[in-house]
Design a protein around this nucleic acid. Structure first.
Lengths: 185, 185
DNA sequence: ACTTGCATGTAAGTGGTTACATGATTGG
DNA sequence: CCAATCATGTAACCACTTACATGCAAGT
């Protein structure tokens, strides 16, 4: 899944600027989170406008820089739809956290404990944000039911991750290297 | 997580050739599956040997090309361990399947049904393979307990994905475009 | 005074993939 | 006979990131 397809998928549902597209990728508007940089979004949008998959208009704002709002054309919609018929690439799942966890036995237990807590916290935030998002969707007319389905998919995953860490974190901490206790006297 | 770190993590636990490292990445030996190509593994290994993080010896085989087996050095082990202390990058999760699912309403129900079945089948295979892997570990002295922990993490995720699709696939199919029925007479 | 957020865009760098080159063996 | 598996390696290419350039407003 490249930046082009990603932008089209967002613009299919609503108009947006390059800046806004990035925001939507960072927060879990799409449950297949992708972190994309401006350096890839802006050229992609410009190129697609040249190919007349998009049109744009500039919207002046008070006290802020002007926005360049992109809108998908019929040609863009058709191209996006056609791309959905192509065979799917495999999911990409890469986790430095899991690499860290696998080698907990090489690390001090304090660090292992810290990383696990951070992870748990992050997952709790993500679950919270996605649950909030779902509640907001009914009022948001631009989303379709597929969006619901996909967010719930992502939510299911985050919830088991959370659960797994809660119930198994002590095991991993036990594997880690016990440090000399610096208790008072 | 780059190819270098990935290779070191595998070689930390056992000696292997470039070809074998790739196999291990493709099957879920590491639950943070990464698909790496030969074009990135071979240069990475050669470079690391130059930096004396690895040593290698060639193993002739009957009826097959010779293998170049790499072994991690103490320096390599230390460098890998040190890298685990660095702050973690975010997980990368990118799913073309979920993009497809989000736009099910644009697609014929037969295609949606097909993709969902394929996905379910793939997940069932992955769960089966990971469960098999766990059973084999006790006999495999080179793995540590962290490996267990990580595989079970990946397994938990795959199991909910499987479950989610089983129970919710009909909803997505309903959203898809009903086709003209070509039933006999 | 400094940082953060808003907003767009380019140029340089990098970390990968794809395709190519080579070649023997086994299975359909 | 063709495809696949085993096995290593290079060169061309590509998509994306990082850093840079610019600038104003609001909050700390």
């Amino acid at each position: 899944m490249n930046v082009k397809t990603l932008c089209l998928s967002i613009l299919f549902e609503k108009e947006a600027s390059g800046y806004e597209i990035r925001q939507l990728c960072m927060n879990g508007e799409c449950a297949y989170f992708v972190e994309v940089s401006f350096g890839s979004i802006y050229p992609a949008l410009a190129k697609m406008e040249k190919e007349s998959l998009l049109t744009s208009h500039t919207q002046e704002q008070q006290g802020r820089p002007a926005k360049k709002i992109y809108k998908i054309t019929d040609k863009g919609k058709e191209e996006f739809r056609a791309s959905l018929f192509e065979s799917l690439n495999d999911d990409v799942f890469r986790s430095e956290f899991l690499l860290f966890a696998q080698f907990a036995h090489l690390l001090p237990s304090s660090l292992v404990k810290k990383r696990l807590s951070e992870r748990l916290e992050m997952l709790e935030k993500e679950v919270f944000d996605l649950e909030k998002l779902i509640k907001e969707i009914p009022e948001n007319a631009t989303s379709n039911n597929g969006t619901y389905w996909v967010i719930n998919y992502g939510l299911s995953i985050r919830r088991v991750e959370k659960q797994y860490i809660s119930t198994h974190m002590s095991e991993l901490v036990k594997m880690a290297q016990t440090e000399k206790l610096n208790q008072k006297a």
